[in-house]
Design a protein around this nucleic acid. Sequence first.
DNA 1: CCCCAATATGAGTAATTGCCCGGCAAGCGA
DNA 2: TCGCTTGCCGGGCAATTACTCATATTGGGG
Lengths: 319, 319
Amino acid sequence: MAKVPQADEPSLHDEAARAGWLYYLGGLTQDQIAAELGVSRQRAQRLVSRAVAEGLIQVRLSHRIGACLDLEAALTDRFGLTRARVAPFAGPGVDAVRATSPVAAAELERVLRMAEGKVIALGTGRSLRGMVDAMDEIAAPQHRLVSLIGNIAPDGSASFFDVVMRLADKVRAPHYPMPVPVISTTEAENDAFHALAPVQRVVELARQADVIFVGVGQMSDDAPLLKDGFVTRAELDAMQAAGATGEVAGWVYDSQGAYLDLGTNRRTGGVRVEPGLPRPAIGIAAGVQKTPALAAALKARIINGLVTDEPTARALLTL
Amino acid sequence: MAKVPQADEPSLHDEAARAGWLYYLGGLTQDQIAAELGVSRQRAQRLVSRAVAEGLIQVRLSHRIGACLDLEAALTDRFGLTRARVAPFAGPGVDAVRATSPVAAAELERVLRMAEGKVIALGTGRSLRGMVDAMDEIAAPQHRLVSLIGNIAPDGSASFFDVVMRLADKVRAPHYPMPVPVISTTEAENDAFHALAPVQRVVELARQADVIFVGVGQMSDDAPLLKDGFVTRAELDAMQAAGATGEVAGWVYDSQGAYLDLGTNRRTGGVRVEPGLPRPAIGIAAGVQKTPALAAALKARIINGLVTDEPTARALLTL
DNA sequence: CCCCAATATGAGTAATTGCCCGGCAAGCGA
DNA sequence: TCGCTTGCCGGGCAATTACTCATATTGGGG
């Protein structure tokens, strides 16, 4: 006969999850939770706040706010998009990525639910990372996940750039990282990497991608490429002088969405997202500071789908 | 040029959803929300509480609590189940259905995500209704949804029994209600309904179901069948005297899970879930008062999968 | 047009929560 | 062993939230 399991020593995560569940779903007060769990009220409070901080408790909105639907329709109309999703504004001091991630996750899940196996290509960045973190674990082994961007960082810290790996973990799908530097130090080095057969196979797969998810980076002084150490201040200055406006998967373009033929663009590894692709290329980008970069990418049809937040959507439409 | 949409007059739901979003995702105080939305602080508070009350804000747990995993393993072992899911206890005064619904919804979504089109048969009841309400909208038109149970209620109020229709709405899948009374007043009437060709076609489809989701009702004095007016007090008494312990899709069985050949069982419409089916038959049932009914259904293998709450799982295992 | 019922609103208040702090115990290197 | 750091614990308090009650408003029926 099966024995009733005894909770010998629930892990901290277990306890936090339980506290959060009792608080948000059960609607108990922290006093009641404390009594239920046999801990002090203060500990109950700490457990609840830990549960939200660590993302053990997920909040989703099941009602599509009318104003956001309107914005989606307007974006679709204005830029001829295949998909547009707008996340409601989450408050003045609140990180736009955090607001957008749940919506982006739902969009990714929509693709993952598709019956036929697809090749899904992914860029990198905070937005994509947030999207994957906000996603439910769902098995979708029929798909293949391929990175558009190199996984060798200048300082060797790969932790931030494992979007594909993290996603593969969650969906248990085969994944293909791009074994090249994000940006090589010389053109020759980049060429040498791309001459390798294993690299070429991944590149070929990425080119065939059925769906593309990418972040969009601005090229102003707060450019993610600079912040993450992929380009130097001097390189950024040079590209800005040449009209650099935005960047997708590390490839820099100008205000018309035309890729520049200078600077790091000659040494960027991986696969460039070509304008006007007939298949979905969804940009995930939050924050009004990305407006010019987004406008250019949309105009040139580097991306033909968009997940963004409400203020950014408004900014794009009032241009 | 597309116009920026103006929020002329956001609906009450819109405002409530937005307030809930700002509160739970953005972490603003109600004062800040009031300022953001341009309403009084009290109204902000009411909007937030409305958002949770109406289910506009969904809470899910992304961490599986160890103790619940242990219970799932023990249930699987003890009753030879294909699937077992246990929702964490949500507090003493909290409706067990509310606690279990999100977990049941995740289980249903898992089936709906499957690539090949399945025939999914559904019973009815509060648990199933909760499951469907807690579900995300996901398109799954490859499946067919069929009701196991009649959709003609004694008082004509079909509102509570449209689980199949509500689900079909959410997944945009073809659906087949069972156009017969839940329980006819005479055997002859029941036979007459089932002699009709359209009824027979639905029955045939339900019999072929690839997956079955059903509630499980107790037959004690608080039996759902009695509460919802499907059986009279006298009928319940008679069946209790004959050993009635539980009920699945309206069909009553005894403590060994053997269907009774008396009472309303002779007049119940729709399709009976036969014991020992080789395909998944998942019981969704929450609340310790259902323990005997569940134990019998599990023993006889009327159901071979279970989604329940923690206290009920413990009760089943300590029998 | 008026009245009634249902519902929303605002003020006040009690309950609940978030957070700062001093204290304490465990871990660790000298 | 001592002294130090680290992290948890519980007390206490200010901020925030939930609830009650009296009043206002809206909409429908007569």
